[in-house]
């Protein structure tokens, strides 16, 4: 369980505004990436985000480039989860592979606004706030093993070690 506040954005938040292309081919650690998170969408975000915060957005979050930093920079910034109406497919895979929770919940997207305090309970599948308790769609079985292992690298490491 984690507590934090909401950062709210609209539809089609693309990977160029989550992590600009000018930094994409510079290799940097996640905490350095975090300094550029959402730089071209919300210049206030990187300096003010706190561990446990969640991002709430509309449909097709993470559309565009396959750049994994768009998930890594949010994780590096301490973002606990992204809650959206839908996700672009590569972003969805990348987030799972890095251990960033990506949750679909229309009701939460409709109700929650910037600054709202929320408790996120991944195990129970709930987001709780003063505006109500929202249940999100369970993740597909195929990805739970990866999330449980802490991401695809750890999952693959264990698998390779068994061989």
């Amino acid at each position: 369980m984690s507590q934090g506040k909401v950062w709210k954005y609209g539809d089609n938040v693309n990977t160029d505004v989550i992590f600009p292309g000018r930094y994409t081919y510079q290799i940097m650690p996640p905490e350095e990436m975090a300094k550029h998170a959402l730089e071209d969408l919300d210049p206030e975000f990187a300096g003010s985000v706190r561990p446990g915060d969640i991002i709430v957005a509309g449909k097709n979050f993470g559309c565009g480039s396959s750049r994994e930093q768009a998930a890594a920079c949010l994780k590096g910034a301490g973002v606990r989860a992204v809650v959206a109406r839908s996700f672009a497919r590569i972003y969805f895979r990348n987030a799972i592979n890095l251990g960033l929770a990506v949750l679909q919940c229309d009701e939460a997207v409709e109700a929650l606004e910037k600054g709202d305090a929320v408790d996120l309970d991944l195990a129970k599948g709930e987001i709780r706030s003063a505006k109500g308790t929202f249940r999100f769609l369970p993740l597909p079985d195929s990805v739970i093993g990866i999330l449980d292992a802490g991401g695809l690298l750890e999952y693959t490491k264990k698998k390779l070690a068994k061989e």
């Binding site: 994994e68 990348n94 690298l153």
Partner: peptide, 14 residues
């Protein structure tokens, strides 16, 4: 189809 970097690294290995 497109995939990410971590996934590519794991696919190289597996």
């Amino acid at each position: 189809t497109g995939i990410g970097r971590t996934e590519t690294a794991c696919t190289w290995a597996t």
